[in-house]
Amino acid sequence: MSTTPIVPTTTDTATGNKLAKGADAEVGTKSRRVKRRLTSRTATVVSLIIAVLWTIPTFGLFVSSFRPAELIQSTGWWTIFQNPGFTFGNYSEVLLSASQSSPQLGSYFVNSLAIAIPGTIFPLILGAMAAYAFAWMKFRGSNGVFILIFALQIVPLQMALLPLLQMFTTFLRPLQNNLHDVLPMIPEQNYLPVWVAHTMFGLPLIIFLLHNFISEIPGEVIEAARVDGASPGQIFFRIVLPLALPAIASVAIFQFLWVWNDLLVALIFSGGTQDVAPLTQRLAELTGTRGQDWQRLTAAAFVSLIIPLIVFFSLQRYFVRGLLAGSTKG
């Protein structure tokens, strides 16, 4: 992930993000750099300590999630060798049990996926379109509007929740009811409001990040296509989007993680039912009612971590690039 020396400043887009054109050239020089040992012994020790400190809490939780309840409650996870015990029971209980007293994470897990996938794709497409407009279409007030959108990242979500909810009642609610009448399989309480909310809240950051990248696309390419008679739609989907793909991928990961990990939007817009509510909400509840049931909490927490961790570890080089395009998401 560190193979491309890029200038990671938003404050400096003029020299800019060189991913689009400069990356290939620079990879060569970089890989020739010889890796050397850590700067000094102290530095090695300090980094080791930090790395261990940062990993231990998660590791402890992970170990505990496979221990039987009595052992979690009575002995520390670091005594696992003195008090051995291994079980998948915690996981099967939190995921599969049909009893009301089980967390029944299975359906919340599906909800999280069903919220996060469209919750990533919708704002990404709309955001890319807007970013393209800001970067390549000249219009009066363009600067002002762009800066306003940037500034909006800073509006606390809490401020927007109540009025937005009322708006949804007026406009989205009838739609949801109709949908339920036509397709009874779709509950009245469906994902629509959560999707729309995440799209709205995600847009400012996405526009801002993608704008930096899209404005670096060589103008000649776009001009050439236009001369060839390509329509605006064709230019956008056939040329701009593919060229911006590295940035889009990174922003997508960022948005995906954000939506997946969100609690506040879910609390307000999902209604808390099993039809819609995501994992985070169920987890937050478990900590409230089940303060002492560590066997459930540990397993449940890990279930919620698994997808972000898969996404993170397999895509981290893109993730980092997305951050480098200058993130200011709160």
Binding site: L95, L96, A98, Q104, L105, G106, S107, F109, V110, L113, I117, P242, L245, P246, A249, A252, I306, I307, I310, V311, S314, L315, Y318
Partner: peptide
């Protein structure tokens, strides 16, 4: 470049989807 990007993104998504389906398939009907 774009092809590998595609694949890199699709794989984990597919993995995530499969895990999700596997989890729910077992919940069973009442």
């Amino acid at each position: 470049m774009s092809l590998t990007t595609h694949r890199r993104i699709l794989l984990p998504l597919a993995a995530a989807g499969i895990v999700g389906l596997a989890l729910t398939a077992c919940t069973g009907d009442v």
